[in-house]
Design a protein around this nucleic acid. Structure first.
Lengths: 155, 155
DNA sequence: CTGCATGCAAATTATTTGCATTGAA
DNA sequence: TTCAATGCAAATAATTTGCATGCAG
């Protein structure tokens, strides 16, 4: 089945074991691909990436494995593009949020401690136990802002 | 075309005029329905609501009008349910975020000034000009938390 | 062995598009 | 009048499901 590289894939194996799910070569290959991705991806993109290495993996298996990965808490679903599910792995790095440019579509990731703190407090003050969250801030990126500034205010 | 009730529908009419778009009875009826909704809704739900009053409105027109409403800034799109676009009108009330329960699916709206402030700062510190944002916090609602507590920790 | 996992193909769901007709300006 | 808006039906796009076969445990 090839070397299981990195702790993240192993963690996912643990998750599968704990749930009594099977360690198949497809699941391993998909997990490897997910954890070696450095950016967010859609199901279809992941499917393409996985197939480069293992053309025998079916699209359906990618969808199903993605569900397990999300349930395991190691991958989360974003809502960056309308109508398509976008994912990214969270294992091994702190939570981050997204800035999306209305003009050029650029996506920038960021992390802010005060913001994390405010989110947690807001939920807890209302009696909730926050688990994960999704923050997308839309607006203009520095470049488009500069361009808009030099060309006069937009609209 | 019936009385245009409320300022919000009028604002939308202004928007249409400014863009050289036409004020049709369908658009009015859809806008009225949107602005009298007190909760978020999906395209399909809106379509159903609109048809109660005006069975002659087509689904496609609802989708297209919703686009205009979003462009006008009076309605925003949420990502509460996977795979379906959810909307709510923002005109006339302060921005709010959403708490979504992983267990029962309940959605609670909330507003937090410190959080709004932290969001704005985080974007501006990075050179962006934030326009709107979307925050969804997932976790357990007070009820499910109590239930989980009395039944022992989940998982 | 035994049953869960896979993957094809078909089904579903949400949304978009082509185009003839209608109606606002 | 004149062209954009409408709405049907068909087309797409993303994702899910049914089911026979394969493989991990």
């Amino acid at each position: 089945m090839g070397a299981v590289r990195g702790t993240e894939v192993e963690q996912f194996c643990d998750y599968l074991n704990r749930r009594g799910l099977k360690l198949t070569s497809q699941r391993m290959r998909i997990a490897e691909t997910v954890f070696s991705a450095h950016r967010h991806f859609t199901s279809e993109e992941l499917y393409t990436l996985v197939r480069r290495r293992e053309p025998l993996v079916g699209r359906v298996t990618v969808y199903r494995t993605l569900e397990h990965l999300v349930r395991s808490g190691m991958v989360e679903e974003l809502s960056i593009v309308k109508g398509v599910s976008t994912y990214e792995h969270t294992a091994g790095h702190v939570h981050h949020d997204h800035l999306v440019c209305d003009s050029c579509g650029r996506v920038e990731e960021f992390h802010s401690d005060p913001l994390e703190h405010a989110k947690r407090r807001a939920a807890e003050e209302r009696g909730w136990r926050p688990d994960r969250h999704l923050l997308k801030i839309q607006g203009l990126c520095p470049d488009c802002l500069a361009r808009a500034g030099s060309a006069g205010p937009k609209a």
